[in-house]
Design a protein around this nucleic acid. Sequence first.
RNA 1: GGCGGGUUGGCGGAGAGGUUACGCAGCGGAUUGCAAAUCCGUGAAGACCGGUUCGAUUCCGGUACCCGCCUCCA
Length: 474
Amino acid sequence: MVEIRLTNTRTRRKEVFTPIDPANVRMYVCGPTVYDRAHIGNARPVVVFDTLFRLLRHVYGADHVTYVRNFTDVDDKINAEAQRRRAAGRPGTLEELIRERTEETIAWYHADMDALGALRPTMEPRATEYIGAMIAMISDLIGKGHAYAADGHVLFRVRSYRDYGALSGRSVDDMIAGARVEVAPFKEDPMDFVLWKPSDADLPGWDSPWGRGRPGWHIECSAMSHELLGATFDIHGGGIDLQFPHHENEIAQSCCAHPEAGFARVWMHNEMLQVEGKKMSKSLGNFFTVRDLLDQGYPGEVIRMVYLGTHYSKPMDWTAEKAAQAEATLRKWRGLVADAKAAPEPSPSVIEALSDDLNTAGAIAALHALAGAGDAAGLKASAALLGLLEDGMGDWVRELEILEWLVEGEDARPVIEMTIEKIAKARSEKDYSTADSLKSALAEAGVTLSFDRDGGVTYKRAKKLDLSKLEGLQ
RNA sequence: GGCGGGUUGGCGGAGAGGUUACGCAGCGGAUUGCAAAUCCGUGAAGACCGGUUCGAUUCCGGUACCCGCCUCCA
């Protein structure tokens, strides 16, 4: 059995991973709030934990890993969008408009993450489908003295949980000292957080013992992980920004509701993503969704490769330069494995790298070694463990067939193909000056040609074509 | 202010207390009408200051700078 080592945020140490039940390894990852397209930062944990999922499936068997990733479909940003639509005259009740928004966002999310080669998790529960479980858990917490109802809200009594702050290394007193939060008058303690809050007529709500309302953010993950994975499970993942308060609060809720269980054994957090060295933000103009990148012509496989190039525990910088390098490498590898049949097993070197705290950069280095040795079968089988070089994701290599050739409504392809034929003819007649001038005109128009030794021609299309550059050529 | 992460060769980016990371770019060569691609070879590093050690880029402490969280943003 391969020994997997993972850095556990909870203990701040790299530990040997030992599943509670090797026949059912259980992992929960915090998923998206479905109010809009996923940005490229949202995609990092998806790729990271997808890779871990693949490794676990390889080691314990595909049928012995349960991966749960939730959709948060109760949220003020979703409500705001639905209210905006209603104000704009869209038909339907608020609940219907909310459902409409979350449905379309989930469909986008699936399409975008599929494009990155991420396997669908075993289960993708929605918060709204587990309201009953949340209410039951909240009632239980009240009964055990860990929560209290006040002014239509239910709050978690942070002081009732000794170990609060253990995950993120904070003490309650320090946090209060440095807190910038406004303290609601109904809180017993400034750090107490909301389990349930009241909804007015303009907000979605569910009936509860505390009146019509909606759940706080943190309780959904505690309730759903308990329902689907049990009171104790193996791995809980998410972005480092969730470490506090979200995960801290999850731990408090779950451990107080089920004090006999340990909740998640291993906590894993991926570091944040930056763009060209800066924090991604709308105001800086460097904010991209995954769909933006796909639309710009970056293949999903290339995006994935860029992500895997940096260890998950370090900040990752998205740059055009990295994408270009990743594309060149994948292009080379795709050429190598084009006619290869995958080996029955991935290379031990790749498994070893991934087993060492998901060292994806090391795994890629191992893939380079396989490629350098000409081991196409081994490369193909090993890359699959990283979600790379898989069948069905490589169409981007043959841009000619798949890209659209419309320029301002006209099909550019006949003009370009005719020009290419002229170049080929000129070359065969050794009229190199004509060939070169046509070639450079074509390059300016947006199509770069290269010739094989055996006379074949391959060409690469730029994102934007400008056919005016071809005018006036014979 | 509190907590946490980072700083490696021109660029990206890993591991290991002492032996080549790896990739890209560069340089030299093969191939090519010229290129591209491909192949072979090759130089180059670990923010700063101390400490531990026979020996540290790798461990410990400090300084500087960068980043994140503490505001339901992965």
